[in-house]
Simulated assay, not measured.
Amino acid sequence: MRLAHNLNSLLATYHYLSKPKTLYLVAGCGKQTNQKAAAKEVYCSQHFQACRKYAQTQGGWKILSPLHKVLEPEEIISPYDLSPRSLSPNERQQWAQEVARRIMQKTNPDTEIVFLTVKLYRKQVIPILKAHKYVIRTPMEGLGIGQQIRWLTDKLSASKQLELKI
């Protein structure tokens, strides 16, 4: 009996330690507030809010910003008017290199990177991270904005139902 207990404890510890870390990246996009606030409060589009809620239930997350590159959710910023679409191809490539560099500074290749973003925010970042052996997931790839919001809403709903059943 004691051996079984010790074995279960050992397996639980191994599972906890070997579970890869995951970092969720959310695009700071769309409508913004008109005052300085924590980055997670500045972006107020429906898409951002859905991505934010989902990422918060999953664990660690950061915000990708055309101006600030990578933001901590609690980082205080002022609203700005810049979109990845307004950047030239060269500026987008420089942006992607800086985003990848900052992500690699804060993580290691054992960290799974999950992009909850539209293609423009991930297109040039992913090849850089993959070249450094990062595992990348894009669970909403190929979905339009409305479909992404629905996917996120469904996942959050399923998560709440699971919590209630436990």
Results as ranks from 00 to 15, higher is better:
L67W: 07
Q46N: 09
K165Q: 15
Y80M: 00
Q49C: 12
Q32E: 11
A96K: 00
K155E: 11
Y80C: 03
S9R: 12
I149T: 06
E98C: 08
K130E: 15
D81G: 00
E72Q: 12
Q58M: 10
S86H: 03
L71P: 10
L10N: 02
K133S: 15
K53S: 15
G146Y: 08
T138E: 15
K40A: 11
A158F: 08
A50K: 11
K165T: 15
L67M: 13
T13F: 07
P84K: 01
G30L: 00
C51W: 01
A50M: 09
I76T: 12
E72Y: 07
Y43L: 01
Q49T: 15
S45L: 03
I128V: 12
Q58K: 13
Q148E: 11
Y80V: 01
H47G: 13
Q32K: 15
Q35A: 11
R102V: 05
L7T: 10
G146D: 13
A96L: 03
K165R: 11
W151M: 09
T107A: 06
Q147G: 08
Q148M: 13
S86Y: 00
Q32V: 04
T111N: 05
A4Q: 11
Q93I: 00
L25H: 07
R85K: 05
L120F: 05
L67R: 13
K53C: 10
Q46F: 05
D81P: 00
R52Y: 09
I126V: 14
T153R: 14
K53Y: 09
A50R: 06
G30P: 02
E163P: 04
K165F: 10
P127F: 08
L82Y: 01
M1K: 12
S9H: 06
Q148F: 03
E141N: 04
F48A: 04
W95D: 02
S9F: 00
E91K: 07
E141T: 00
S83Y: 07
C29K: 00
P89E: 07
K123L: 08
S45K: 06
L152V: 05
G60K: 12
L23R: 07
E112Y: 03
N108Q: 09
A100T: 07
S159V: 01
R150A: 11
S45W: 06
L143A: 03
G142Y: 04
G59C: 10
